[in-house]
Simulated assay, not measured.
Amino acid sequence: MSWTARLRRLRAEAERRLPVLTEVTSRLLSANLLDAATRLAAQAFLACVPLLFALAAFTPQSVRDQLGASLRALFGLTGPADQQVQQVLSASTDSALRETSGIVGVLITLLSATSFSRAMARVCERAWRLPRAGTRIAAWRWVVWLLTLLLVVLLQGPVRNGFGAGLWLGTPLVFVVSTGVWLWTQHLLLAARVPWPPLLPGALLASAATTTLSLTARLYMPGALNRSLAEYGSLGLVLALLSWLIVLCAAVTFAVTIGAVLAQQPPLSRYLPAEREP
């Protein structure tokens, strides 16, 4: 028997015994997930920067201090990179920034930032092969998801520190919180068209990916950000952050898609009924 025939036979046997692997491979190759992840990262960056300035301009000092602590916990910021962030967060001491921005400007910033929510919703819909939800149904969900995500980022500092207990408690807490966030994210942005149980595999995978990346970010990102800042200035900081966002969004995109496939294929499909809610 030739090698080609043997490979075909092994492939057929694998597809027969493990159809879920075939479906996962097919879904990952056919959905242009890397393109979707790159678009998601770009929208995340375009949403985060103006929102950071808005928070710096209109929130009290205690909120800005908490945001700075959470960003340091997320990226392990030190040195020049940390100084850049602190400079942005202290910008609210200038009343001219508030006058220039205004409440209307903040609302426009928030509405434009929902492009990130829409990109995340498209990732979830492609994972579950669902059509886009109508704007009347989904619009408020985009805003709610974005505001909730801001709150989650704001609380990253104390959660990662285990509320004072340290990483031994903080790391499991981050995983549990992330699982809840990604479970709720899918349910919300899919407009409740998929019940809760089938969303759990994707939530667990996304939580595992983001938790792992957040732990490695504390080791890699401080040096990368400071080197980029020293060599290329603020542009280097942007490039380093955008590169990290691409990796993060790719991990989330793949996790949600693989989770959807696992929930729809045996053996999990027997325990996670995926009938859509009316």
Rank of each mutant, 00 (worst) to 15 (best):
A5S: 12
E13Q: 14
E15F: 09
R17G: 07
P19Q: 09
V24D: 11
S26V: 03
S30C: 05
A36C: 04
A37W: 00
A42D: 07
A42Y: 09
F45V: 14
V49Q: 10
L52T: 14
A54F: 00
P60N: 13
R64I: 01
R72V: 13
A81R: 07
L97C: 06
S101C: 07
I103Q: 03
V106W: 00
V106E: 02
T109M: 02
A113S: 15
T114C: 06
A119C: 12
W128T: 03
R132M: 07
A139D: 05
R141C: 03
W142L: 05
V144N: 04
L146K: 07
L147W: 03
R160G: 15
N161R: 11
G162I: 00
G164Q: 02
A165K: 01
L169V: 15
G170D: 04
V177E: 12
G180T: 11
P197D: 06
P197Q: 08
L205G: 09
T210M: 15
T210V: 14
L213T: 12
L215T: 12
A217T: 11
L219I: 12
L241K: 05
A250W: 11
A250L: 15
T253Q: 11
T257N: 14
V261F: 00
A263C: 04
L268E: 08
R270N: 10
A274H: 12
